[in-house]
Simulated assay, not measured.
Amino acid sequence: MSQISIINAKTKDDIAAVKAVFIDYMAFIEDYLGQSLCFQGTDAEFATFPDIYDALLLVRLDGEAVAACGIKPFKPGICELKRLYCRPAGRGHRLGQRLTERAISQAKTLGYSQMFLDTDAGLTHANKIYEALGFKDIDRYYDNPMGCSRYMALDLKD
Rank of each mutant, 00 (worst) to 15 (best):
Q40I: 02
E30N: 09
K157T: 13
C69W: 00
G92A: 13
I4D: 06
C79D: 02
E131K: 13
A121M: 02
R98P: 01
N144W: 03
R83Q: 10
G111Y: 07
G134C: 04
D155V: 02
E30C: 10
R98H: 14
R140L: 07
D51W: 00
I129S: 08
C86Y: 02
V66M: 09
D62F: 09
E30P: 06
E101F: 00
L84A: 10
M152C: 06
V18K: 11
I7M: 14
K157N: 12
F46M: 03
F49S: 01
G111V: 06
G77L: 08
T42R: 02
M152I: 00
C38H: 13
L117N: 04
H93Y: 15
Y151C: 01
D31E: 13
A126W: 11
F135G: 04
L133S: 04
S105C: 08
M146H: 13
M1A: 12
F116V: 00
D62V: 08
S113Q: 09
F39R: 06
R102C: 10
T11V: 06
L154V: 05
D120T: 05
N127G: 05
K72N: 00
Y130C: 03
K136N: 05
G77Q: 06
K82T: 10
G147P: 10
D14V: 03
D24H: 06
A55Q: 11
